[in-house]
Nucleic acid binder design. Sequence first.
DNA 1: ATTCACGACAACTTTTTTATTGTTTTAAGT
DNA 2: ACTTAAAACAATAAAAAAGTTGTCGTGAAT
Lengths: 231, 231
Amino acid sequence: MKTILETDREYICDIKAPCFQALLPEEVEVVRASKTQVLFRKDDNLTKQGAFASYVLFVIDGYAKQYLEGDGIKNYNLRIIKPGEFVGLSAVFSENTFNYSSVALTDCHIFLIEKEAIGKVVKQNGTFGFNIIKRYCAQNTNLLNTVRNLMYKQMNGRMADTLLYIDGLKSEKSDIFQLLSRKDLADFAGISTESTVKLLKIFEKEGLIKLQEKDIKIIKHNALVEISRRG
Amino acid sequence: MKTILETDREYICDIKAPCFQALLPEEVEVVRASKTQVLFRKDDNLTKQGAFASYVLFVIDGYAKQYLEGDGIKNYNLRIIKPGEFVGLSAVFSENTFNYSSVALTDCHIFLIEKEAIGKVVKQNGTFGFNIIKRYCAQNTNLLNTVRNLMYKQMNGRMADTLLYIDGLKSEKSDIFQLLSRKDLADFAGISTESTVKLLKIFEKEGLIKLQEKDIKIIKHNALVEISRRG
DNA sequence: ATTCACGACAACTTTTTTATTGTTTTAAGT
DNA sequence: ACTTAAAACAATAAAAAAGTTGTCGTGAAT
């Protein structure tokens, strides 16, 4: 049986995120000193849109989805959050509140790191900051693509996008589709659940994909890419 | 259609919590300036045990339950959170993290108030502070009773307690039992779900209560009080 | 050592949620 | 105005979750 300290050290050393590798021992110490670890159970909110954000979340393991809450029942899914990723980074540098919600798709071991600590380390360690900025850039790019998709594509293209995106995660998490309902897929594509169901059936009939319970196998990858491209 | 400002003023003035009445206009302003309002949907976590707490939650309307997370699946329910109550107060004065979880039983309109603001107002306004302390005292008393129950009572007594407690909320929220599953009741009493089901049946057979779908009517109040007292 | 309280498990039923399908409106694009 | 895309609605089917019940085992109290 391990002590808490041993477990902690193991985590901080085993961390896969490239950015933590850049930290000097004393910087690691700053992070360690102001962090806490929490187990979020499946379906727990990691962040709640609009709530005050005094910390950043770092996913040790587990999967979550990040989404925008609308007025009523309509959410829009932005991305799948994977182990080694941050949640709520923007809260550190600009906003004082989380600008999106996220919820655990599986049990998630999460580090919470107070934003002052992250801010301090960023100021001290340029490489670390650089990596953080890189993550921002990636997220920005994703968001721009998202907006583009919403603006210019319709059902078929959006669903193709969604399927390709989720399918791309299979290399790390082969049962990723098991974690997602039709409504989840709909919220990724930004269309209704019913349309999603119908569209998946059509894609299957055309031999593009294969539906096996909740799992979806991509058969004609290129064709989907083409559908996505055409919009 | 109201503007946001009008809505805010309405809320801040309509607040039923006695403690807010004690605030001077400029103190109200401090609170207003550092608050944000969030709609938590049913089943959303208001607080997550172990997560950093930089703010206090004040329930405008809606109901939630507060509970302790155990190792695995076993939670222990502490109380029902009602409109006009605070959540996470202890985070302001002592702990840096929430020491319990809570989850919305209905949609909840919540004010989040940064703890610095609460701290500041408490220092300025003794009456306000006094009210806060009173709330603490009440919570402490409850916790002591809880510990007592867990230590000294067994199934029958605990369930009687639970039923009396929940029933006491009916005056404000007549359909309160509709919001609670058998597991919820079990987690309040600190016994297994199966035992809860059996015990409720027994209580009904003995004419102490009446089960109507999810609702539970107390028939022999005094008898339950006696069972609770005997333990 | 025996009894009693209560949780654990297993089988089953009921209720609730999710998925599916067809039909009808709405609304946007041409 | 006409065509098409996609949401909304409604009805049903299927799957999952919650609730119920009986039996059995374990550990605490006497």
